[in-house]
Design a protein around this nucleic acid. Structure first.
Length: 425
DNA sequence: TCTGGGGTCCTAGGACCC
DNA sequence: TCTGGGGTCCTAGGACCC
């Protein structure tokens, strides 16, 4: 019988911030999305005042019984803390799957020959706390979905001390927990599906578990059918140790202020194209398809919302920034309309192949650039060295539209000049 | 004034083939 | 009355995740 654990950090982004400003730990703290747009993480103290996804401008001027501390997202810090967290977890289990920036599935099959699952969970917690300063929750179950449910419960009820195991030898306990879990809290059930299930009278995880899989498959999908089976302890979703190569790369951003000039938009698209090409090379892939999209804000009252996307296939697969910028510029020209106040734009690369020269068309005039890989290697080498930066002129210098990050914390763990100093008297 | 970014998988339907 | 059947490939859109 397989056994999975899910380990996940408590309010990860906020914890990363308060780790270096411990005085804020018990105060309400939130982390904001890019451009300081809306709330994407809250600690326990902030949960009673602020909803997930709530726009910051609504909160900033509202009055609360306590001051709410806000940080712009600092992904350099979160990534570096994530790496420490993940290597700490890897040390404790032979087979693991990193599921998100702060979550890891661990294969615990057979481990109960030596130690109880919950004792193991407590060891895991202590190990991570000591090595990173982060507090994690641990849920165990015979399927990934049940491990997720256990982890949800470990946070919902503090008396579990952040560790909870659902095991086949105690089915009553699993039933009890599932009867208390609303369907929208199940892993794989989002708002839409939850609504439809509620209409059918299925409100709790236990009620979903007791619904016939064939009925679910017919009326919903094979995905939800799998969830039903997983809730019944049947492991349908295996541990994925080697995540497959990416199938698409997206670079998109909302602007710090609206873009109305064509030249500004060109700079932005050029910048995103550069970033996307860099990511593509880091993945050691070549792409054969590029799309560009631009859109206005759907929230502006009165204004007509405009959004459009254009895509095109490349004759030759490429990972050369010059090819991707050139095509992106042509695509932008197809969808650009004067007179709109654009809020967001982006580029998407897909249709990947692991090597550049696939099959040269007999009649194609186009030939691959022979200096490409050497030049790109030099570009990436300089930019990764952190000693200097080079970029394509089309991106411009210090543009108006760049991201707002007014409340950014220092790069505590990734920049020498920002390393915290301990004062000893 | 002000509302995130980056992914995955599945399905339905159209185009096209013989 | 009744207007084929079966297959593949591609794309757009919808659902989900953090």
């Amino acid at each position: 019988m397989p056994m999975f654990a899910l380990a996940d950090a408590n309010s990860f982004y906020v914890s990363c911030e308060t780790l270096f400003q411990p005085g804020l730990r018990r105060k309400p703290v939130v982390v904001l999305s890019n451009n300081d747009g809306c709330v994407i993480a809250r600690n326990a103290a902030a949960k009673k005042y602020v909803a997930m996804g709530q726009p910051w401008f609504q909160i900033r001027h509202a009055s609360f019984p306590e001051k709410i501390y806000a940080f712009s997202s600092n992904y350099a810090l979160y990534h570096s803390m994530s790496q420490r967290l993940m290597s700490g977890l890897e040390e404790m289990a032979p087979r693991v799957e990193q599921y998100s920036i702060d979550e890891m599935f661990l294969d615990l099959t057979g481990i109960n020959n030596c130690i109880h699952f919950e004792d193991f969970g407590r060891q895991l917690r202590a190990h991570i706390l000591q090595n990173t300063g982060l507090t994690i929750g641990v849920g165990c179950g015979p399927s990934k979905t049940l491990a997720k449910s256990a982890q949800w419960a470990s946070k919902e009820w503090p008396q579990f001390g952040g560790v909870l195991a659902l095991t086949p030898d105690n089915p009553r306990r699993t039933e009890k927990l599932l009867s208390l879990q609303p369907v929208e809290e199940i892993w794989g059930v989002g708002r839409r599906i939850a609504k439809r299930l509620n209409v059918l009278g299925i409100k709790t995880a236990l009620e979903l578990a007791h619904t016939h899989p064939a009925f679910i498959r017919k009326n919903f999908s094979v995905v939800l059918e799998r969830t039903v089976r997983e809730l019944n302890g049947e492991a349908c979703i295996p541990l994925d140790e080697m995540p497959a190569a990416k199938q698409q790369i997206v670079c998109s951003r909302s602007f710090g202020q609206r873009v109305t000039e064509y030249n500004e938009m060109r700079e932005a698209i050029c910048h995103y194209a550069e970033r996307a090409a860099e990511k593509l090379r880091a993945e050691r892939q070549y792409c054969r398809h590029v799309s560009v999209f631009i859109r206005t804000s759907p929230f502006t009252p009165g204004a007509i919302h405009y959004g459009n996307v254009a895509g095109e296939k490349l004759t030759l697969a490429t990972q050369d920034t010059r090819d991707i910028i050139a095509l992106a510029m042509r695509l932008l020209d197809r969808i650009w309309l004067d007179g709109h106040r654009y809020m967001k734009a982006g580029i998407l690369l897909d249709d990947f192949t692991p090597s550049g020269v696939t099959q040269l068309s007999l009649f194609s005039e186009e030939q691959p650039r022979n200096d490409s890989s050497a030049l790109m290697a030099v570009l990436d080498g300089i930019n990764q060295s952190r000693l200097g930066q080079v970029w394509f002129a089309g991106r411009g210098i210090n543009p108006q539209w760049k991201m707002k990050r007014k409340m950014l914390s220092p790069a505590w763990t990734t920049r020498w000049s920002d390393i915290p100093v301990a004062m000893v008297r």
